[in-house]
């Protein structure tokens, strides 16, 4: 049960209605619709950062899912487990990213992805300055523009993580069904 009313199509404010044209827009939009002037700018930002860009979809989903797991966002972990699977991240990888109690190093041996996930854990899981060691490993594998974009992706995901967690947004039934079928629930 969400902590705020999630506006349905009949209650959608004028400037929010186009987001309902193709059916249920999901709880993030249905919550944001409470403040309709925030919708366009917020969704444009989220779309630009989390959506297709010069960085491939698998890499971005690794970041989003791991960040969400580290910040213990149930809604984002569930939703992006499905997105990750659909993007080609395999079951064992998704399971490893979701599990913050065990190391992912055995699953992600590729040095580039290992450096990336190390950076995610340092940025999303830490407080205060990020260590030079994490930065050095990450920067050894990624160009500066990638460092900037992927760090922005972690930060934007953290914003969504706290938003979805604080408002206790409900996971879609279809997502839960898929996770059960995938033995990830």
């Amino acid at each position: 049960m969400s902590r705020v009313e999630l506006l349905g199509a009949d209650d959608a404010p004028l400037v929010a209605r186009r987001y309902y044209d193709e059916g249920d827009p999901g709880p993030i939009v249905a919550a944001l619709a409470q403040v309709p002037e925030m919708l366009d700018s917020t969704l444009a930002f989220i779309g630009a950062v989390l959506g297709p860009s010069s960085i491939d979809g698998r890499t971005k989903e690794l970041v989003i899912l791991r960040t969400s797991a580290v910040s213990l966002c149930r809604y984002c972990v569930d939703s992006h487990s499905v997105v990750a699977l659909d993007t080609g991240v395999v079951h064992d990888e998704v399971a490893a990213l979701r599990n913050v109690e065990a190391a992912w190093t055995a699953t992600f041996a590729d040095p580039r992805e290992a450096a990336l996930l190390g950076w995610v854990d340092a940025v999303a899981g830490g407080r205060g300055p990020v260590s030079d060691e994490s930065s050095a490993r990450f920067k050894a594998e990624f160009a500066d523009h990638e460092v900037v974009e992927l760090t922005l992706l972690i930060a934007a995901t953290l914003m969504l993580n706290r938003f979805c967690t604080a408002l206790d947004l409900p996971t879609a039934t279809a997502v839960l069904d898929r996770l059960r079928r995938e033995r990830l629930a």
Binding site: L14, V15, V35, E37
Partner: peptide
């Protein structure tokens, strides 16, 4: 909320511009 334009009313330009767009 179906005819809500914005929660922001000060400055009034915010809802005025959104209303004009609508």
């Amino acid at each position: 909320t179906d005819l809500l334009i914005s929660r922001t009313t000060d400055p009034l330009a915010v809802p005025a511009e959104l209303l004009l767009r609508a």
